[in-house]
Design a protein around this nucleic acid. Structure first.
Length: 714
DNA sequence: TGGGAGTGCTTTTTT
DNA sequence: AGCACTCCCA
């Protein structure tokens, strides 16, 4: 026991050993948050205050859940496997599987991922004859998800105009279709679970009694529904231990409510607010920069990180002529660092948006520096994997129209759009699934679709009773998928991935001993939806790490490069246009980026950057100005960096000659009475029609007519 | 059916 | 620029 609490600092100790009351832990970056969470659980159990059975621990990512489980099992000698530690979605899934009947779901209900959801909405629009230009499917998905995340069903949605009226109708149709097919989307897992507990008194009482301690990680990322779900489960007197950092809330754009942290204080009358402010990660200068940046945000609960690690190195700043120039600089520094003995995996290259990785990758590749890019297509989201899974889903649930349509003509078997229209109309009339309606088709469509149905039926018979991996293998082979990719030119990778899927099934059986409700297949398919990203090959190589700032949250590195620090890019102009809240979220993002670094931090920007196929002229990010000068060392000579116009002679060429217009050049710095200092980004028209686009930094990007706007060259 | 051409979008991302 | 998606023709 004393071991357990050894080496905790006073606030950490206070948090871990909090009496059984609600607690809100404001845990700064690098302050030992995960340690506090796991030690708290271990302490509660080992002091006999609660059994493993009475703990509910919630995280946002599978990775965090796994790490928590692993650390916990190393702290206390208990079997953590049966414990309720998992993601919001994972735990809701577990609960719904256990009570599928009460929740009104089929035992084998499947989970739609975002792509499946989008496909379903598109299909719905087509069936309902709704113009998808007027009602963009993506926007509708967002509309539906946002409502679910607010706990609002179609029937309760607020209608304030005709347009929304229509969207709500589509929402209702979507709900109906999901129910017909027996599938749920991500938000539905939570909402369904919430409603079940709310409606079913005995069930609610059972779980309220059971979970005596509820612990929540990354509390700042919870949305309205998750908050309500927690509150419901805690309603029987459980103690809620919420850990979060309002300064690291970077998911507002997908529904996270930082406000939940303030609400928590109120709703739980939390007298116990503990701040973990000692940072064990970064050197002093880095931390000072982070503090200086985040200080500019108004909406904060307040917290100041400190360290006793010493100042460390200054922050290195570099202003490049172009994105290419920036990439060269970064790669050159990396080569030097590696020569000096820095481990490549301890070097991170961060950027605001994924599109920025390309230049960097190219330069790394050219200079033979091994690197790994995070983000991008995940294993279970690959086309060939989704196809194989669709066949498997049809075996488990023939009513799954999404799966049906995905593979009914893949590989092609002569079932064209005509036949499918026919089939969908029939299904609509019969109010049944496509699979069911197939039997009623006549003519050629009846023949071809009938053959497909027979294929699925025979797959089902042949795989009956087979172990999961063999079942998967059989389906891949006999469905014609394997053959299709064997003949395709680019099919080799896909075949390998399909083999990998068979391996994943084998591993799954070994790990889980398998079999929840509904058998191994259903559990495996659930895993594929809920943990799409977990299965990533090629980790742990000696490679430099490239990722977006979002993806870097929760990680740390000896050396961090934050690239593309330009106004409009980071902070991103879309966020800035959202107003002050948008800018504050961008600033938190910058804060997250800075606090990833242990020993050395580079910040860089470029004066020109290729974006969306055209050269943009950029001003340095306002965040750079927020880092105190005395913490920084500028790496390029001032004289070279003053002109915003790249010169041919100074650099290896490759720049387009800026066209002249009205005496103003692209790249020219100008002053406007209202918007201040800006850089001309592009021009249009001649003479009286001439217009110029000017990037005014903080005041945004503007198109101005030269005839009216007074622009003074600076 | 399938491929080639044309069109339009493009922040961040987990589940 | 690059990618996903649609449309149209062989």
């Amino acid at each position: 026991m004393s071991d357990l609490l050894a080496n905790l600092n006073p606030p950490q100790l206070q948090a871990v050993t909090l009496p059984p009351v609600h607690g809100l832990i404001l845990a700064g970056a690098g302050s030992g948050k995960t340690r506090v969470l796991t030690t708290r659980i271990a302490w509660l159990i080992s002091t006999g205050q609660v059994g493993p059975h009475g703990i509910l621990a919630v995280t946002f990512t599978n990775k965090a859940a796994k790490e928590m489980t692993a650390r916990l099992s190393s702290l206390v000698p208990i079997n953590v496997r049966g414990m309720w530690i998992g993601t919001f979605h994972g735990l809701c899934n577990r609960l719904l599987r256990a009570h599928y009947r009460e929740a009104g779901l089929p035992q084998t209900f499947q989970i739609l991922d975002s792509a499946d959801q989008l496909a379903m909405v598109k299909r719905l629009l087509k069936n309902l004859n709704i113009d998808d230009e007027k009602y963009p499917p993506r926007e509708l998905c967002h509309f539906i998800n946002a409502h679910k995340e607010q706990g609002v069903r179609a029937g309760q949605a607020e209608v304030y105009d005709n347009y929304t009226q229509k969207r709500v109708e589509i929402y209702a149709e979507y709900e109906a279709q999901c129910n017909r097919e027996g599938v749920v989307d991500f938000a539905e897992l939570l909402l369904r679970c919430y409603e079940l507990l709310q409606r079913n008194e005995p069930l609610r009482a059972h779980y309220q009694q059971r979970f005596r301690h509820i612990l929540v990680d990354e509390f700042q990322d919870t949305n309205v529904l998750q908050y309500a779900w927690l509150k419901l489960l805690a309603g029987g007197g459980a103690n809620v231990f919420a850990v979060g950092d309002d300064d690291q809330s970077i998911y507002r754009f997908r529904g996270a409510e930082v406000g939940n942290m303030r609400d928590f204080e109120r709703d739980y009358a939390a007298q116990n607010i503990i701040r973990l402010e000692q940072n064990y990660r970064s050197q002093g200068n880095i931390l000072a920069a982070a503090n200086a940046i985040i200080k500019n945000n108004r909406e904060r609960l307040g917290k100041n990180l400190w360290t006793d690690a010493g100042e460390g190195e200054p922050i290195r700043a570099f202003e490049a002529y172009s994105d290419l120039d920036e990439a060269r600089f970064v790669v050159e520094e990396i080569r030097e660092l590696v020569r000096d003995g820095v481990v490549p995996t301890q070097i991170a290259l961060l950027y605001r948006s994924n599109a920025q990785s390309r230049v960097l990758e190219n330069e790394l590749f050219t200079k033979n520096v091994p690197y790994k890019v995070y983000g991008g297509l995940r294993f279970f989201e690959r086309q060939e994997i989704k196809h194989a899974l669709a066949y498997l889903r049809l075996l488990g649930n023939p009513d799954d129209d999404t799966a049906f349509l995905r593979v009914v003509n893949f590989p092609t078997r002569g079932i064209g759009a005509r036949s499918l229209e026919n089939l969908q109309a029939t299904a609509h009339q019969m109010n049944s699934s496509l699979y069911n309606a197939a039997a009623s088709l006549t003519g050629k469509a009846g023949q071809t679709v009938g053959a497909f149905i027979r294929l699925i039926e025979s797959l089902r018979q042949e795989t009956e009773g087979l172990p999961l991996p063999e079942m998967v293998e059989h389906v891949i082979e006999k469905s014609g998928l394997a053959q299709h990719y064997r003949t395709e030119k680019e099919g080799q990778d896909r075949l390998e991935n399909l083999d990998e899927l068979i391996n994943a099934a084998a591993t799954f059986i070994d790990d889980e001993g398998a079999i929840g409700e509904g058998g191994a297949l259903v559990s495996f398919l659930t895993l594929a939806s809920l943990e799409a990203g977990e299965h990533q090959a090629g980790e742990g190589q000696e490679a430099v790490q490239l990722m977006s700032v979002h993806a870097a949250k929760g990680l740390e590195f000896d050396v961090v490069f934050i690239t593309g620090l330009e106004q409009g890019l980071f902070p991103h102009e879309n966020s800035v246009n959202e107003g002050k809240d948008g800018l504050e979220e961008e600033r938190r993002l910058m804060y997250v980026a800075v606090t990833r670094a242990r020993q050395r931090l580079y910040v860089s920007c470029a004066q020109t950057r290729m974006l969306h196929g055209q050269t943009r002229y950029c001003m340095p990010s306002s965040f750079l100005d927020e880092i105190p000068e005395n913490l920084m060392r500028k790496l390029n000579k001032k004289a070279e960096a003053t002109s915003a116009v790249p010169s041919f002679s100074a650099f290896g060429g490759g720049y387009a000659e800026p066209p002249a217009s009205g005496g103003l050049r692209i790249g020219q710095t100008v002053e406007h009475a209202k918007f201040g200092i800006g850089v001309i980004v592009s021009t249009e028209g001649r003479g009286a029609d001439a217009r110029v686009q000017v990037n005014f930094g903080g005041s945004g990007m503007k198109w101005l007519a030269l005839e009216y706007a007074k622009l003074t060259p600076v």
